[in-house]
Amino acid sequence: MEVRTIKVFTTVDNINLHTQVVDMSMTYGQQFGPTYLDGADVTKIKPHNSHEGKTFYVLPNDDTLRVEAFEYYHTTDPSFLGRYMSALNHTKKWKYPQVNGLTSIKWADNNCYLATALLTLQQIELKFNPPALQDAYYRARAGEAANFCALILAYCNKTVGELGDVRETMSYLFQHANLDSCKRVLNVVCKTCGQQQTTLKGVEAVMYMGTLSYEQFKKGVQIPCTCGKQATKYLVQQESPFVMMSAPPAQYELKHGTFTCASEYTGNYQCGHYKHITSKETLYCIDGALLTKSSEYKGPITDVFYKENSYTTTIK
């Protein structure tokens, strides 16, 4: 009895394709271990004539594949690729409408935090270190965002349907971005203890939790000093293409032309909904596939993004 075979390709990165001759009487799992086709788990399936010449994702289970996976995804987590594939199996079914010149995501599976993050990423200057993220990001900007969303979920250790947080998501993504040249110098002034300067680099240099107003941050924000008295913390120097200011959701007025974009969060910790506000020729609110415009805006804002380049204080 002759062994019926077909020729397929296996890959971990969709760049390096490895030619395989597979036995049609055995499952993919018996031949390769966990195997995925377009995100779908085909591990328990036997090869079919229609699979001839198709590319299958496999887990990096030998040295060659491990090197290829690390170079593309910059992670050695053995569960990463499987999590990416199972997320992709959902995100490829989502709709990605162009809204006001940006790629958004039609609401499904509690994905409003991903839509808000995706919209924000198209408006701030950011370059990702893992080629996987950078490639998928370019495709997302062009309207094909399924891979990018699935990668975000995998890097953030999230599953489809789980509630997510924009600030946490951005923080994970910033860790995989090139923020080497970003720098922030802060000064804390206390009447009792004097003053202390701190220099922050990388992710810490672009994120701040405690106030939404970048102007206020430049002037000074009140913080408790270690001595128990009130101290003032203010920005001395900022070198970065953008800054992200966050605070627990509270009524906040966004003035046209003073910011790049913002995240609105309605609801409580267990259950809520994100919308995205962007400042173009007027203010726009993007909620999944829905767009509304207004000249002014007041609502429960939790993150505001500002364009920056270089700032030095005039406070002496």
Rank of each mutant, 00 (worst) to 15 (best):
A146Y: 10
H176N: 05
Q197F: 08
K54Q: 14
S181K: 12
D77E: 08
N14M: 14
N14K: 00
P300I: 15
Y172E: 01
F148G: 04
V22A: 14
T10I: 10
L254A: 05
C261M: 02
H74D: 06
E52R: 11
S295R: 12
D109A: 08
C261R: 01
P34M: 15
R167G: 05
Y36D: 06
T43V: 08
Y265M: 04
D303I: 01
K158Y: 01
D13Y: 03
E296Y: 15
K293G: 04
A289N: 03
G272E: 06
I152R: 09
S279W: 01
N110M: 09
T103K: 04
I223W: 15
D109Y: 04
Q31W: 10
G202E: 07
E2W: 10
T211N: 08
L118W: 05
E281S: 01
V22K: 04
T266V: 10
E144R: 08
G267R: 06
H276E: 01
G39Y: 10
F305T: 02
K92E: 06
K307H: 01
G288N: 07
P241T: 07
Y155I: 01
T278H: 01
Y28R: 07
L235E: 06
Q98K: 13
F80H: 04
A150H: 07
K46Q: 10
Y138D: 14
L114P: 01
Y138E: 15
M26A: 10
V189Y: 10
S240Q: 03
I277R: 03
G82T: 14
Y208M: 01
E168W: 06
K183Y: 03
S79P: 15
A247T: 02
Y155Q: 02
N268K: 04
A262N: 00
Q20A: 12
L17F: 12
Y84H: 08
Y214L: 09
Y137S: 06
V8D: 09
E2Q: 11
I286L: 00
L212V: 11
A87G: 07
K95P: 07
E68H: 09
F242K: 01
N111I: 07
V243R: 01
D303T: 00
I6A: 13
M26P: 06
A262M: 01
T312N: 09
V203P: 13
T226I: 13
M24G: 08
V304A: 01
T258A: 10
K307Y: 02
G143I: 03
G288W: 00
T232C: 03
S25T: 15
G202R: 04
Y137Q: 06
V166Q: 07
G82C: 14
S279H: 01
Q237V: 10
Y269L: 13
C112N: 02
I124S: 03
N61E: 11
Y265D: 09
H48T: 13
P248K: 11
T5M: 13
T226E: 13
G161Q: 02
S246N: 01
